[in-house]
Write a protein that binds this DNA or RNA. Structure first.
Lengths: 348, 348
DNA sequence: ATGAAAGCGCTAACAC
DNA sequence: GTGTTAGCGCTTTCAT
């Protein structure tokens, strides 16, 4: 490995000059800088990130914490972030928490120990485990998808409230009255926003919000399955189900198949997110899709812009990115459909 | 941050003694070692990985290179590896290459620069870009899923040849004669093994291997779609298609829907791998499933066992893990089925 | 068995 | 503008 001293020796200057030349320090004669750069290039010199990190207490690595690697939103964001960060000269350290708060804490601690330059964080719980650690003070952190309460950090989230609203509106418009919803655990910001969005839509359509039956489950396929079962066992059973995550959609589809419920003839199903497979499901899934790529790019930009800032927590930003309602074949009129116009509400 | 010197000062010993005590060096009085350990614990001392890495030219980070983040095998393996490595005290650096050989090279170079302790590598091409770099000599590397030719490294792969064999055998047994296969790019070890496996099965069943029509595509959903179209445009068209990757299955399913081909009535489709959604597809997908988790665990074990070895390339190992044929609903008898027994071959 | 001292490769405060 | 010096936190000879 070519070292900086080596470059300095061959250039006939001191190591500090090489350091300055390479890091674009102003006080280096332009000509000399060029000569050094050319030489470094020629020698294939690459600075040792460990040494640099030790000296400056800041590595060229950025951490990403996701709850789960099987969720399309999460592996999607990992892909986007990694490619963007590589272009910016950073490496990406990955941690997976399985939605466990304690693991969250450990992952964050690990990142601080590693002196990562910044952190992308999908929280596993509503309260941030971050303040535990004072080192956090000057490492910028961006929350992704979910927010912790009264967070001092930047955050980027989807407009899930709008999404749930639009889905519910769509279902009401098709003539559905009793709508079930499989939502995530209480306490997540996302859960609250999704439920409220759907409730809003019912109110806006002049319906009784009590017609929305919500079951809360851990984000998992079995969670979706059991949630679906619980909803369909209600009497009267809902004629439409909103599965508020792709895991839940999968679970619902599995349960529907098991119970012999055909979609959309006997039941309408709408999802959130848009993994590729939605289009090849029994019935292609109507959903509110999020622009993961855009979110990732914004997140990267936000974090990087904080990197050289003195106080990375100054005036935290929250960005909301908008999704799109994709009407596909898993939603339709309720069975033995009464004309929607017969009802008091007005569906748009 | 508590430093080692701090611990040393409070313990009334020198830093070297603390270092020795903590790293389990033999020449430290047992009692003293315990005292130091307790103290370090109490102070919440955590060694600085950057300093340690600089000193020993070996960080506590392990790199993973995958071609693509949307492939269930790859994000699956990322999840398994990260959780296992965390337990072992390592961090996981992620790189995604998009199946680009040049990016591969850069990712490997980046990892060597970072002084990673080891590398998991899913190659993007048949020839290893590794020998470019002399630093590679003492960093253990394990190839995953695919092998590079005459590789000096350990490798873990699936028994895809067996998988393709068993799928083809299954299809022949159902009475299919003309079988199409959407395979990956020529040159990958995986492609070769899958094609050969299917060919073997035809021969073993006493059929003409020429009945297998293979199209090669880049591993992508559109690749699967176009491959499917090409196969179905053949005259006579195959009555069964083997899609040799989950991306291909997705593409095939999309194309089938577009063309109005119903599965399995008009056409049988079999896949490889087993992402969750296979079970909720139009017709649940018959497939040869691989034990990703097992593969990941073995890979982690293999790499870690190389870590302290003097020559990590001594007698490289190749491990083959076996998958399972999962017969589901996407395969059935060919349309207007002739009795399979009418043929000369014997299907088992 | 323990301590002193050197140094991994780099950066930055201070000199000139 | 450029060189000298010190030191980030740790490991590892080399003494004792």
């Amino acid at each position: 490995m070519t070292t900086m001293r080596e470059v300095a020796r061959l250039a006939g200057v001191s190591a500090s000059t090489v350091s300055r030349a390479l890091s674009g320090h102003p006080y280096v004669e332009a000509e000399l800088r060029e000569r050094i750069r050319a030489l470094a290039d020629e020698l294939g010199y690459r600075p040792n990130p460990l040494a640099r990190g030790l000296r400056s207490s800041r590595s060229n690595t950025i951490g990403l914490i996701i709850p789960d690697v099987f969720n399309p939103s999460y592996y999607g964001i990992a892909g986007v972030l990694q490619s963007r960060l590589r272009d910016l000269g950073y490496g990406l350290l990955l941690e997976v928490t399985n939605n466990d708060r304690e693991t969250d804490r450990r992952c964050l601690a690990h990142f601080y120990e590693q002196h990562v330059a910044g952190i992308f964080y999908v929280p596993s719980s509503a309260t941030t485990p971050v303040t535990v650690d004072e080192r956090a003070a000057d490492v910028p952190l961006v929350e992704l998808f979910r927010r912790t309460t009264s967070s001092p950090f930047d955050g980027i989230v989807h407009d899930e409230d709008v999404g749930a609203h639009r889905i519910a509106e769509h279902l009401v418009g098709l003539g559905h009255e009793r709508i079930g919803m499989i939502a995530g655990p209480r306490g997540y910001s996302t859960t609250r926003r999704r439920v409220n969005g759907a409730l809003d839509a019912l109110r806006a359509a002049g319906r009784d919000p009590g017609l929305l039956r919500v079951v809360h489950r851990e984000y998992s396929v079995p969670g979706g399955e059991r949630g679906f079962d619980e909803l369909l066992d209600l009497r009267p059973a809902p004629t439409a189900v909103i599965a508020a995550s792709s895991h839940f959609v999968l679970g619902a589809l599995l349960a529907a198949r098991r119970r012999g419920v055909t979609i959309p003839r006997q039941l309408s199903l709408a999802g959130m997110g848009d993994p590729d497979w939605y289009q090849v499901a029994q019935a292609p899934v109507t959903t509110y899709a999020f622009p993961i790529r855009e979110l990732g790019l914004l997140a990267a930009h936000l974090l990087v812009s904080r990197l050289d800032q003195v106080d990375p927590r100054e005036r935290p930003t929250q960005i909301v990115v908008s999704g799109t309602l994709l009407k596909r074949e898993s939603t339709g009129a309720p069975p033995r459909s009464r004309a929607p116009s017969k009802r008091r509400g007005r569906a748009r």
